[in-house]
């Protein structure tokens, strides 16, 4: 018998009723839900400003029922910097993919983190450009086949996977830098705890909190959702090991 007092799970009201455009097996939907739950549980829906990126996450504003800014490609940390400095009592977060954050937006993310902006950065790393059709990202693995590395990423031609989170952990402006994933119930719970900590940090004037989520892109990787999860475990985690890099 289902009664309200027996309910162990319910859908957060911070998610809208819009049907997500994400592909089956994509990690974005899970991370969106976690952010929505954290906002709901902290009771900060009316105090949160999200900054969405260019890439698959561009339409994040359709799914989380909060006020949003939609940034130009890579510029989300600059928008968030001003939004937070001018509204210090608001929770401000950016939601960015690997192309947005680790390629075209490297200057903005490095300097926002180095200034220690009191913002939250959620960084989705699926090692590929999803929205534009599966091209190489800075985080694409060596040998990984993409639309622009049809013979696999070649370091002589394309350089190396950029471990930007490790770089960001070196910056004194950051207070919390962690790498999470969301491929099973345990990691989903851990990722949610990390996101919550990041949001809480942003009111403590400790600096920037940065949460990388290693995710899947089954369409870009040309794998089924189940295969994509396994490919991530076998190939992504060795290159991008999970866990906290910094927690002050």
């Amino acid at each position: 018998m289902i009664k309200p007092e027996n309910a162990v799970y319910s859908r957060t009201k911070v998610l809208t009723d819009n049907i997500m455009h994400y592909c089956p097996g994509c990690s974005h939907g899970t991370v969106h839900k976690l952010i929505a739950e954290v906002i709901d549980e902290m009771g900060i829906q009316d105090k949160t400003i999200g900054v969405s990126p260019v890439g698959c996450g561009v339409f994040a504003y359709n799914y989380l029922d909060i006020d949003w800014l939609e940034a130009a490609h890579g510029r989300a940390p600059a928008l968030a910097t001003a939004a937070k400095r001018l509204n210090p009592d608001r929770y401000v977060f950016t939601y960015q993919g690997d192309g947005d954050l680790a390629s075209i937006g490297t200057a903005e993310i490095m300097h926002a983190c180095n200034r220690g902006e009191n913002i939250v950065v959620i960084f989705i790393n699926n090692a590929i450009y999803g929205m534009t059709g599966g091209q190489m990202a800075p985080t694409t693995l060596v040998g990984q086949v993409t639309a622009t590395t049809p013979y696999g990423r070649n370091v002589e031609l394309n350089g190396y996977p950029l471990k930007i989170t490790e770089l960001i952990a070196q910056l004194p402006g950051t207070c919390y830098v962690t790498r999470q994933t969301v491929y099973n119930p345990l990691t989903v719970r851990k990722a949610k705890r990390a996101i919550r900590k990041a949001f809480e940090n942003s009111m403590l004037k400790k600096g920037t909190s940065f949460v990388e989520v290693v995710g899947t892109c089954s369409s870009g990787w040309k794998l089924t959702p189940v295969e994509a999860n396994q490919w991530m475990v076998d190939n992504m985690f060795p290159e991008y090991p999970l866990g906290d890099m910094k927690d002050i």
């Binding site: 510029r75 600059a78 928008l79 910097t81 001003a82 200057a107």
Partner: peptide
């Protein structure tokens, strides 16, 4: 960054 801060 400046102009995007203006946007924000």
């Amino acid at each position: 960054a400046s102009i995007n801060m203006l946007y924000g």
